[in-house]
Simulated assay, not measured.
Amino acid sequence: MPLILSIDFEDMAHDMKRDLGLWETGPIRTEALWQSYHDIDDFLRAHGGARGRKATFFCTGLIAEQAPDLIARIAADGHEIACHYHFHDRMDGQDVATIDRMLGRARTALEDASGTSVRGFRAPQFRIDRTGPAQYQAVMRHFDYDSSFPAESREEVAAFRAAMGLGDFPILPIYRGRVMGRHFRLGGSYLKLFPGVMARRLIADAEKAGFAPHIYLHPYEFTASGSYRLSFGERLPLGMARTLYWGVRQEQWHRAGNRGLPAKLARLIGHDGLAGRLGDLVPAIRA
């Protein structure tokens, strides 16, 4: 099966400051995001094949509000604009009223910026409540498909859909496979840091399980420039111990394995290229 590639298009610098309590919100790193987009689009044109030159970008609503011209450019180049919430917040700790408001705000901003209908959704960090149906029902009110569910089998997806009362709502999962007794998802830091043989094994296991193998990545993983890093001064209000800790952790995200990622991904794609936009692959998308 052709490999699916999607991009969680977010500004990690902004989102990390929000997660660490350094601010509620502020300006995004627009120049870094533009450069990342050009790098990703160039990669797709070179390695995506006939269908896979167009991909799905799960964008935060914040980017659409602060850099609408960037979202417009991504859409104009033929890529699918999908939603990655408004802020890059963990939804599983939020109330449904907040979630409904943030979903609506993000979708409006993304559609206004792109001039396209936004149909797909992915929760930040895949963190959406799966103990009850309320949060998924909010997603269903705003979108036509979801890609927030890491799964090991088609049966797991079907059981979850039935338990949550989601009917035939399309769920496009990220494969979650076992290697050496631990679960790993296909994408992100796992793809960067582990050898290509591990990714090929997970791709093969996904196909055996009946999934179209799906890799997800982020803008900061396509660059080793450190353009999304928080500086020492930006981290210093956390106190010295946490400042040093988060400095080390940032090496994992912004340096380790980044330079080799495009070549590793190109080797995984294969002769058939990528599968293309997620929304075009959903068999039962609502009109």
Rank of each mutant, 00 (worst) to 15 (best):
I74N: 12
F126E: 12
C83A: 13
G104E: 14
T98L: 15
H88A: 03
F57D: 15
T98V: 13
I81L: 01
R122A: 03
D69G: 10
T131A: 04
A64L: 13
F57M: 11
S114T: 05
L110Y: 02
V139R: 01
F87L: 12
F57P: 00
H88T: 07
A106M: 04
P124A: 04
P124S: 14
D112G: 05
T60P: 06
A113I: 11
H84R: 11
C59L: 14
F58Q: 14
R90F: 00
F87T: 11
P133I: 11
T131R: 00
R122V: 03
R127E: 06
Q135I: 01
Q125H: 06
R119V: 05
V96G: 09
T56C: 13
L62W: 15
E80Y: 08
A123M: 08
F126Q: 02
L44C: 10
A134M: 06
G48H: 11
A138F: 07
I128H: 06
E111D: 15
C83W: 02
L44F: 05
A106C: 11
R53G: 12
R51H: 14
T116W: 01
A109D: 03
A97M: 14
T131K: 06
Q66P: 07
A97K: 15
R101D: 15
H47P: 00
Q125P: 04
R119F: 07
G93K: 03
F87S: 11
A106S: 13
G132D: 06
I74S: 03
G52D: 11
G49M: 08
R73Y: 08
G104C: 13
A109Y: 09
T60D: 03
R73H: 12
I99P: 05
T56H: 15
F58A: 14
F58N: 12
A67G: 09
A55K: 13
F87P: 15
S117C: 14
D92Y: 00
H84C: 10
L62F: 12
S117F: 11
G132F: 05
I74C: 14
C59W: 01
A106H: 04
H88S: 07
D129E: 04
H86E: 08
A76T: 07
R90G: 10
I81A: 08
S117V: 14
E65W: 03
T56D: 07
A76F: 03
R51T: 07
A113W: 07
H88L: 06
L62R: 15
D69T: 12
A106P: 09
R122Y: 05
A123K: 09
T116K: 07
R105D: 06
G49C: 13
